[in-house]
Simulated assay, not measured.
Amino acid sequence: MSTPARAGDIAFLTHGNSDATPVVLAHSILSSGAMWSSQASLLVEHGFFVVCIDARGHGASGATPAPYSMDGLADDTVSVLDTLKIERAHYVGLSLGGMSGVGLGLRHADRLLSLCLCDMRADTPAAAAAPWDERIAIAQAARSCAPLAEPTLERWFGRAFLEANASTASLLRNVASTTSVDGFAGCARAIQAMDYLAVVDRVETPTSLIVGARDGTLPDAMRALAQRIRGAVFEVIEDAGHLPNVERPDAFNAALLRHLERTVA
């Protein structure tokens, strides 16, 4: 396994030729850059330079003291770009990574070639915010995210997928279980406080929105979001939940390549 490079507290792995067009991949909460292995290989094969970032308090990144914010997580991505001396990059973010991607589009559009936002929303209404309190309390009481791992994977995929894909489930379960409690809690609070919806129409970066068809309320939320971002393209990955890049990689990869074909300079 490669040793991650660092931009301050933030760890990242790079793949491919650093002279090629860069694509940044940003993951969900309770995960790490490892969830992008299929897409990293695909993009390198298509001639891109890939940067997989571990969010603050996740993977190999440091868990700094609270509070965290979506704007702060977006700034973490910019610090990686600065470390790599990348002026502009395509950005692909899923769930937590997609949410902070909106912050990038609003605060750092000059650093972006495009945005591909997956299985996310731009605000957190009360019904979506409430479950995070219980999850944070469970992790803090156990001093570990391990009790959250199995329930999280079942929400993401369903039991049938986990049983049929034991090695993938084991990898993701381990990543979730070993996530820092402080990192998880900090990112969960950032999700609860997120409210970009009222200003999301200011995003001018070429944008695609991709979502799994079985991802709860997110298909409807993202369909509405696509109407608020000028020129945004909306795609649904059928028979997929919260991590369509893992559950249905062929369909997701095709959508991702379509996005890059539309937006590549």
Rank of each mutant, 00 (worst) to 15 (best):
T3V: 11
A7I: 09
G8R: 13
F12Q: 10
L13Y: 00
H15V: 12
H15N: 10
G16P: 09
D19M: 08
V23K: 10
V24E: 02
H27K: 03
S31W: 00
S31H: 07
G33Y: 01
A34E: 11
S38W: 06
L42E: 03
L42I: 04
V44P: 01
E45T: 12
F48M: 04
G57W: 03
A60T: 06
A60G: 02
A60F: 10
S61D: 07
G62Q: 11
Y68T: 07
S69I: 01
M70D: 00
M70Y: 05
L73R: 01
L73H: 11
A74S: 12
V78N: 09
V80R: 06
L81C: 09
T83Y: 03
K85Y: 03
K85T: 07
R88Y: 06
R88V: 08
R88P: 01
Y91M: 01
V92P: 04
L94K: 02
M99D: 00
M99F: 05
G103K: 03
R107F: 08
H108Y: 13
S114T: 14
L115M: 14
C118R: 09
M120E: 11
T124I: 07
A128C: 11
A128Q: 12
A128N: 12
A129I: 01
W132D: 02
E134V: 09
E134C: 00
A141R: 11
A142V: 08
A142W: 00
A146W: 11
A146D: 11
A149M: 07
E150C: 09
L153V: 10
E154S: 13
G158C: 10
G158N: 02
L162S: 05
A166Y: 02
S167D: 15
T168K: 15
A169M: 02
A169S: 07
A169L: 07
R173I: 02
R173C: 01
S177K: 11
S177I: 04
T178K: 13
D182S: 14
G183C: 13
G183R: 08
G186P: 05
Q192E: 05
M194P: 02
M194Q: 13
R202K: 15
E204S: 15
L209C: 12
T217F: 05
P219N: 02
D220S: 14
A221Y: 11
M222E: 10
M222K: 12
I229W: 08
V233G: 12
E235P: 00
E235N: 12
V236M: 15
V236P: 13
G241M: 04
L243C: 15
P244C: 09
E247R: 15
E247F: 13
E247S: 13
R248P: 12
A251K: 12
N253F: 08
A255N: 13
L256Q: 05
R258H: 02
R262D: 08
T263K: 09
V264K: 03
A265N: 03
